[in-house]
Design a protein around this nucleic acid. Structure first.
Lengths: 182, 182
DNA sequence: TTAGTTAACACCTATGTGAAAATC
DNA sequence: TCGATTTTCACATAGGTGTTAACT
């Protein structure tokens, strides 16, 4: 499914209150040690240092990127769990992650859900997946990461869809947009 | 609201897939040190060692309790947070906790949601609230607890309501049961 | 039979969609 | 004017209710 979107140049809508990714971030894991404990994480980083614009049905570079915003790692809520528990799942899913362009209230208020990340509109991003062999969340900062990058998950953050072919793919495949199918 | 239920003898339905408590467990905290970090927890323990039955519109003791089931502590998902963050909230809510009578699959499968606790039907239970001054989840086992017990939150676990006055109170106050109001 | 438990159901709340209009 | 962003909306999914009937 990601392939189809990638061919067209995926866009993800970001809103003030936070919008989910579609397709969502989901990976199948294998080859883990059965009994060892693992923590699964994901994050989203800038794919390059460009700002983009959609012109003549194409995404084109439109200058230097805005300064990057503070990023967080998203720990999968079922972490830590054993290798066999992760491998038995149909997939490790981060579908609750939300994207926003809303700078969080700096006064320590929790105005955004915990699983919300701040992005710059009209910039290109790359989701990443991390596996850590670690049984204790407290020791996470001292553990070695194994990081996986899937190029087909790159997307451009937008506040409104630019490419109508992307819009149509979303309508066709996202169950929540079923109301717009004919 | 709890008072109204307590006067009638509160019942909570437990199901195979897990049912929420209503009213939900919610407390307002005050008197914390503003900048210190705290972890908030709750659990549910047996209120006595009796089995009950509902007879002649009354709950009566009907023998010795069944063996207690393994209990877990439920860490509030926003833990740890500073005193001022906890006190600024309208209340610390554990509304996502679910009650079940379904013994969890012993093979390490995650068949139940993490915030689900196993109870014995027709037994009386007491929810408890714990505050721990502790900035790190990893150090939680070594910290001193401050435990609060609210008698009016005692309830009897059932698979179907026994006292119709309790049923009516649930219908009147739980928004999800609005369909049964006349 | 009786008392307790389970599963299917209609009805509700809560929240995820892109469209369209309003705003910046 | 123009492009980008925000707000409101109808329509969907997801899941929390007690009821009822079947089951043990």
């Amino acid at each position: 499914l990601w392939e189809q979107f990638h061919r067209r140049g995926t866009e993800m809508v970001i809103t003030k209150t936070g919008r989910r990714m579609f397709p969502s971030f989901k990976v199948k894991v294998s080859g883990l040690s059965k009994s060892a404990k693992y923590i699964m994480l994901m994050d989203i980083v800038a794919a390059d240092d460009c700002r983009y614009k959609f012109h003549n049905s194409r995404w084109m570079v439109a200058g230097k990127a805005d300064p990057e915003l503070p990023k967080r790692m998203y720990i999968h809520p079922d972490s830590p769990a054993t290798g066999v528990q992760w491998m038995n799942r149909p997939g490790v899913s981060f579908h609750k992650l939300k994207l926003t362009n809303n700078i969080a209230d700096p006064h320590g208020h929790v105005s955004l859900a915990p699983q919300t990340t701040i992005l710059n509109s009209m910039h290109k991003y790359q989701p990443r997946f991390h596996v850590v062999r670690c049984g204790d969340l407290a020791k996470l900062p001292y553990c070695a990461f194994r990081t996986y990058v899937f190029k087909e998950m790159q997307f451009i953050a937008v506040t409104a869809y630019q490419n109508e072919k992307i819009t149509q793919l979303k309508i066709d495949h996202n169950p929540f947009a079923k109301g717009f199918r004919d």
